[in-house]
């Protein structure tokens, strides 16, 4: 089965300093791929390069047959790619409802937010609250819910567990698994929290200093003690 997202030899960085070196990976429909690695390994940079926030220097990024080089950031979501950036990216000056509307504003006809509120009942109770009034967990739900409002085929998710209680992290991971199985959503999941990422992922790849040092199915990675000690720190 051919991949939904195919990345070959991606090199990207800030100014003269490349952060990613020759990264290749692929994500299929109905698959969750975890991107693991220490702080500064280039995980966030990888997602930014994929969604176009950071221009790639070299390499090919192909999404469902479409070469993503030259596709503007603001067009990505129309092609089916949603990126939930690090730090949750909720627009704190807007209400919950406005944030969700923003996620699907380009769609015609624009769907109501009811589907997202069904998925996250906690958000429905706070729909008129401003983003900065929400708890960390609620903000993460809002950021993910807003991305899902665009009905993407590929979700780029950056550190969803950051600063969240384990119980809420588990809920989010369960939701990802459910969306994958029910809707065929593909997820590229960047995580520091290796255990929770591998609990939900089908495959994982380990980044170290901007290079892919290992690529394997999640169970194998979780069982590879040497790799864990060397790159993942547990």
């Amino acid at each position: 089965m051919s991949a939904l997202l195919e990345v070959e030899g991606l090199t990207a960085g800030y100014g003269a300093a490349a952060v990613l070196h020759d990264v290749s990976l692929s994500v299929r429909t109905k698959q969750i791929v975890a991107v693991l690695g220490a702080n500064g390994a280039g995980k966030t940079t990888l997602l930014r390069a994929l969604s176009g926030l950071l221009p790639a220097e070299r390499g090919r990024v192909v999404f469902d047959g479409l070469d993503l080089r030259g596709v503007k950031v603001e067009r990505m979501v129309r092609h089916g790619i949603a990126h939930v950036p690090e730090g949750r990216g909720v627009v704190t000056e807007l209400t919950v409802d406005e944030n969700l509307r923003l996620g699907s504003l380009w769609r015609k006809p624009r769907p109501s937010n009811d589907g997202i509120y069904e998925l996250f009942p906690a958000l429905a109770r706070r729909r008129d609250h401003l983003g900065h009034q929400l708890s960390g967990g609620e903000r993460q739900m809002l950021a993910i819910g807003r991305a899902l409002a665009a009905e993407p085929r590929l979700l780029l998710l950056d550190e969803p567990s950051l600063g969240l209680a384990p119980k809420i992290t588990a809920q989010i991971m369960a939701l990802l698994r459910d969306l994958r199985d029910r809707t065929g959503l593909a997820v590229l999941l960047v995580e520091q929290n290796v255990r929770s990422a591998l609990s939900v992922a089908d495959e994982g790849l380990v980044l170290s200093l901007g290079r892919v040092v290992s690529r394997n199915d999640a169970a194998t990675l979780a069982g590879d003690a040497d790799l864990r000690h060397a790159y993942l720190g547990f």
């Binding site: 926030l53 990505m76 979501v77 950036p85 627009v91 000056e93 807007l94 923003l102």
Partner: peptide, 17 residues
């Protein structure tokens, strides 16, 4: 709504189309 979002959070807004 687009104008407000673009002013407050340009990168996030671009990601949302």
């Amino acid at each position: 709504l687009r104008m407000r979002a673009a002013a407050f959070a340009p990168d996030v807004s671009r990601l949302l189309g």
